[in-house]
Nucleic acid binder design. Structure first.
Lengths: 115, 115
DNA sequence: TTGACAGATCGACGAATGTCGATATATTGA
DNA sequence: TCAATATATCGACATTCGTCGATCTGTCAA
């Protein structure tokens, strides 16, 4: 899904926005949907509690999922704009884009100090 | 899905939790999944920007969806613990459970002042 | 009691999603 | 150059999801 479309996190609007266009609702929903799977929540949690980027190979045993499936979830999160991918030789390291998650929290904040 | 199971919002854990059980990851994912649809984002937005509870019949024309579909989405959000349902005669009024949405924002907060 | 209306539930359908094994691509070390 | 390893992609499959028309349930007014 690396289609040149903007990642959801860059064009979403807060839940309490005074007006919410169809496109903004879609982007906001896409952002939440990216976290709407237990495996992806666990990936984000693993990255959130790690100071350093985490190797993909390290996630597979933790999640108990096959390598293609983990790769699939990592791609979804990266496409949504929540993860950063970094190639180190033959290993792929992922880290959380803290500002993107902050944006997510702001989207969920009804007091709407966001965007 | 009113099956006596706890709504996701009551048993989810923050994304940055030091440890995250499988069940907590599932509950957290379920909460995000509840908001992972544009129609449901728009419903929450409509309720967030309204001081009074909103009638279901008022949502249908706004969303441009059929009555069963709107009812379906309202049920999903209510089951997740995000909405409150109130029967007024033959009308059903829905309102946002502000504390539940606050919980959602806290779950997304990496600084983890939650639960 | 009956007719009208709001809303929930049911059944069906196509589309999207999560998962895996098999394969392709790329990088390293010998 | 070649073998080994890490990761992405592909193809397939079962399951879930969003949507609708039809129907059921409950409430009000006449």
């Amino acid at each position: 899904m690396t289609t040149g479309v903007e990642p959801a996190v860059t064009c979403c609007a807060p839940l309490a926005a005074p007006v919410l266009s169809l496109e903004e609702a879609q982007a906001t929903a896409a952002l939440f949907k990216a976290l709407g799977d237990p495996a992806r929540v666990r990936i984000v949690n693993a990255l959130a509690t790690s100071a350093e980027p985490v190797c993909s190979c390290e996630l597979e045993p933790v999640l108990g999922l096959s390598q293609p499936t983990v790769s699939h979830h990592l791609k979804k999160l990266t496409d949504a704009g929540l993860l950063e991918r970094e190639q180190q030789g033959k290993w792929a390291y992922f880290s959380l884009k803290r500002d993107a998650v902050e944006m997510l929290a702001a989207v969920a904040d009804l007091k709407g100090v966001c965007c």
